[in-house]
Computed example of a mutant assay.
Amino acid sequence: MATNKVLGYLESRKNLTGSACGIVGLALTFTGMAGPYWPAVVAGLYGAGALLAPPERPPLPDFPDPSAQLDELRDDFGKLRAYLTDIELPPAAAGRLTELTDLLTALLDPGWVSQVLAQDPEGIHALSRAVRQDIPEAVDTFVRTRWWTRLAPGVEPPERHLERQLAVLHSEAQTLATSLHEVEARRQESHTRYLEDRS
Rank of each mutant, 00 (worst) to 15 (best):
G35H: 00
L97Y: 02
R57G: 07
V143S: 04
E88C: 05
A152L: 11
H170R: 09
S128Q: 14
D102L: 12
L162A: 06
H161A: 14
R193G: 12
A167R: 12
R187A: 10
Q119K: 11
E122F: 08
K14E: 15
A50V: 01
V183R: 14
K14Y: 14
Y37F: 12
G111L: 02
Q188V: 13
R74Q: 05
A173S: 07
L73P: 03
E11A: 14
E72F: 05
A50Q: 01
I87A: 01
P110V: 15
L10R: 01
L151E: 05
N4F: 13
S190C: 11
S190W: 13
L195I: 15
E88K: 07
L195H: 15
S128N: 13
K79G: 03
E137V: 12
D75H: 14
G78E: 12
D134C: 02
M1Q: 07
F30W: 10
V113N: 07
A93K: 00
E159M: 02
W148E: 14
P61H: 12
L60S: 15
L84S: 00
A2M: 14
A167Y: 11
A126L: 06
R13K: 11
A130W: 15
T141K: 12
A40Q: 00
T31M: 11
L10Y: 01
E122T: 09
I124D: 11
E184P: 03
V168P: 06
F63M: 13
F30K: 07
P64V: 04
L100Y: 15
S171H: 09
E122C: 07
G35L: 01
R146W: 01
L7P: 07
V168Y: 08
L104Q: 10
A2G: 14
L166A: 05
P136R: 08
L10M: 03
A185T: 10
N15V: 11
R96T: 04
L97H: 03
C21F: 05
S128K: 14
I23C: 09
R96S: 05
